[in-house]
Design a binder for these strands. Structure first.
Lengths: 208, 208
DNA sequence: GGGCTTTAACTAACCATTTAGTTAAACAAG
DNA sequence: CTTGTTTAACTAAATGGTTAGTTAAAGCCC
């Protein structure tokens, strides 16, 4: 491994570890010392490669959003009918949050703080993702497939449910061990069926 | 004002201010000095009445959950049909989060951190609220009003959308000033119609 | 007098950031 | 080929600001 390659993998390792710390503890709660320790590098290496805590956070957030949004937009664009686009939208969002378990917690914390630490580029993606759904719903209405609906509410229900599902895994575990006997069986779906169930419910609600 | 009353109002004032700080910055991000300053009391008064930062947080969270959950359970219990109960459930939840703007952000942060700082009593309420919806859906199915559905998904869609709406207000403001021209008109509902729109969509999706 | 509150330190720990190095790979000159 | 030099990558230790929590003396109001 050449020096430059080693530098790249070091940076990647730092970003990966930082993401999990920011997801679990937030920007204020995360400790640069711990990130460095878990990444197996000296703390100063983080400052050498990336910059301070704020830059580290921004970069993690930006990279997440970039990857997720690009995949979402391209998957939706590959479909033609409004229903297929809607299903692709939901399915891809579930996949993204499954592939990147840090994204949902980080996003939820940002919502709670009014998006204080979201970098500019991140806000652009938030907007594009929302506009994409608006377009899908509009197309569905124009083609007579969907009834009229408020895109903001629909968006809320999709994003809200998926984000809560993705971020809620640790909490579900906690509840399941705490209230073992009282829970009805099978209340918690697996990832695989989540997208299908949400899509079915949504399509059922939107169809004429 | 008697001595005890003065102590009570001091405590209330501290809790109220602490709630807003915890909502905006989280447990790790909030500063006890700032809470004391904004509450108009000396920092020592907080330690005298309530205890340290952790106790302050627990008490704020516990009080929120207690008030919200009791209102939710009693409002649902006052209805008889499954649809009325479901509508009461949704409406009360929207009202609760409207009356107490700190609840949604605090809850979302807790979800993100796996409920690390939720006091025992709070977890009990989370469970009871979820079980209540499960009962409503079961009743609806037994009475032939609702089709079969996964209560966990339904719960996710309700809680997720309402929480995201409630916690998302500052973010919506940010997006609206940043992307002024590009936003379609009327995409963002007002609080008053939110409960009705979610209820209608949900009932439409669940009805046979 | 006694419960409540303020004032105004104080400390001990924590934590982000900086500084002053060290190491080893790449490289150039002889 | 090898010796000396440069440079990127990294480390260990120090620095200095911040912060939760404490304390003691004094004042206030019933």
């Amino acid at each position: 491994m050449t020096r430059l390659e080693s530098a790249d993998t070091t940076t990647m390792q730092i970003l990966k570890v930082a993401a999990s710390h920011f997801a679990e503890k937030g920007l204020a709660g995360a400790r640069v010392d711990e990130i460095a320790r878990d990444a197996g590098v000296n703390k100063a290496t983080i400052y050498y490669h990336i910059g301070g805590k704020a830059e580290l956070y921004s970069e993690v957030f930006r990279a997440n959003m970039h990857q997720s949004a690009e995949k979402l937009l391209s998957n939706v664009a590959s479909k033609t009918s409004a229903e297929d686009k809607l299903r692709a939208y939901i399915t891809t969002m579930v996949e993204n949050l499954h592939d990147n378990p840090c994204a949902a917690p980080m996003m939820m914390r940002e919502m709670a703080s009014g998006g204080e630490n979201i970098p500019e580029e991140g806000l652009n993606y938030v907007m594009r993702i929302f506009m994409t759904l608006t377009e899908i719903l509009k197309q569905g209405q124009e083609e007579g497939e969907f009834r009229e609906s408020n895109p903001a509410i629909t968006h809320l229900m999709i994003i809200g449910s998926i984000m809560f599902y993705a971020a809620g895994e640790p909490m579900r575990q906690k509840l399941m061990t705490l209230f073992d006997g009282e829970l009805p069986q099978q209340v918690f779906t697996d990832d695989g069926r989540l997208a299908a169930e949400i899509s079915d419910l949504l399509v059922h609600a939107l169809k004429n």
